[in-house]
């Protein structure tokens, strides 16, 4: 045995026993963008047993400013984020079992992934997915840690089923619009501050030190020098549809899921087919080469540039339309080129 965890074991609240616990835990991270990159690296370095990381996207140049697992080569090759992440994470700690899943987190899949994990870290970029995570976590009694950031602002809260209010209690409804990385940008320190809170809470949960959990909704603005920590347990609702007595887990039902989404931080729209399909990318490449424009393909996806738009199609049929925030325009392009 080497002493790679010695400094963490010297930290009394963890110790050798805590490290033992950490090494047996399985964590699910939804999202491999800025929060997911930093969170995954921290957990893998800390020596968790198993990591499942899910993301629907691939690496782009505009990610490199803050998404710490990725390199210029990854952007050049348009590698799916979780593949690039797994490559880097395995090099950092080969003893962690890492599962990389290229997918958009749907209700069905979330339920499946959630059943086998000890903890979920939220690293998504939208509330729709968070509400699904929230329902799945309540359904299986798995703790999860909300985290989000935009500009120099960040927010985080640890949700423990049967103890704390859930995200649905706090939000009431799914927030629409507002600032995104698209309109307000994002700086790296805001990401890392959120992740520091998330992973500290994660370590407490993984070693079983629930008394040390923060129990407050944290928010901060690193540029405006603001910080707040407030107790929100009074907002727990007895009639909450996600965690109350008569719960129905509404966000896991099919009709509550949209099939299109404007992507955070980019001038892009994602479109998902109603049912998963397997695309023959090679055949598609040949078809599109006749359309004019530029076609590029790797084993995971195909990219097609035409005019001011670029369409990227993944093997599971998902399409990301770059160069527009307009969903109907994106759908038009989608149907024009992919049937």
């Amino acid at each position: 045995m080497n002493n790679r965890y010695s400094r963490q074991e010297l930290f009394t609240p963890i110790g050798k026993a805590g490290q033992e616990n950490i090494s047996r835990k399985h964590v699910l991270i939804i999202g491999a963008g800025a929060l997911g990159s930093a969170g995954a690296e921290a957990l893998v370095r800390a020596g968790i047993g198993q990591l499942t990381i899910v993301d629907r996207d691939y690496v782009e140049w505009s990610n490199l400013q803050r998404q710490q697992l990725y390199t210029e080569d990854d952007a050049r090759n348009r590698l799916p984020k979780v593949i690039a992440a797994k490559n880097r994470l395995s090099a950092i700690n080969s003893s962690v079992s890492i599962e990389a899943i290229i997918a958009d987190a749907s209700a069905l899949e979330l339920k499946e992934w959630t059943q086998n994990v000890d903890l979920i870290i939220d690293a998504t970029d939208n509330f729709e997915t968070r509400m699904m995570i929230n329902d799945a976590a309540q359904m299986y009694g798995i703790p999860w840690i909300y985290g989000a950031c935009v500009g120099s602002y960040g927010i985080t809260y640890t949700i423990i089923p049967k103890k704390t209010p859930c995200l649905s209690c706090l939000l009431g409804t799914v927030p629409l619009g507002g600032l995104t990385c698209d309109t307000a940008g994002i700086i790296g320190p805001a990401v890392n501050m959120v992740v520091s809170y998330q992973i500290s809470e994660a370590l407490k949960i993984l070693v079983g030190d629930s008394d040390s959990l923060r129990n407050k909704l944290i928010s901060f603005d690193l540029w405006k020098n603001q910080y707040s920590a407030i107790k929100v347990e009074k907002l727990k609702k007895k009639d909450c549809p996600s965690c109350g007595k008569e719960r129905t887990y509404p966000y896991l039902s099919f009709e509550n899921q949209t099939k299109t989404a404007v992507l955070c931080g980019r001038d892009s729209v994602q479109i998902r087919p109603a049912h998963p399909v397997v695309r023959d990318l090679e055949a598609l490449e040949k078809t599109l080469q006749k359309q004019g424009g530029t076609v590029q393909r790797n084993p995971y996806l195909l990219s097609f540039s035409t005019g001011s738009h670029r369409l990227v199609i993944f093997q599971d049929g998902r399409v990301i339309v770059h160069g527009t925030k307009n969903i109907s325009e994106a759908k038009t392009l989608y149907h024009r080129y992919f049937g």
Binding site: G31, G33, A34, L35, G36, D122, A123, T124, D125, N126, F127, R130, G147, A148, C149, V150, Y153, I155, L170, L171, P175, G178, L179, T180, C181, I186, V191, V194, L217, S219, S228, I230, C264, G265
Partner: peptide
Amino acid sequence: IEIVHFVGGG
């Protein structure tokens, strides 16, 4: 007064 607003980015 403490005001916390929820954001979605990440």
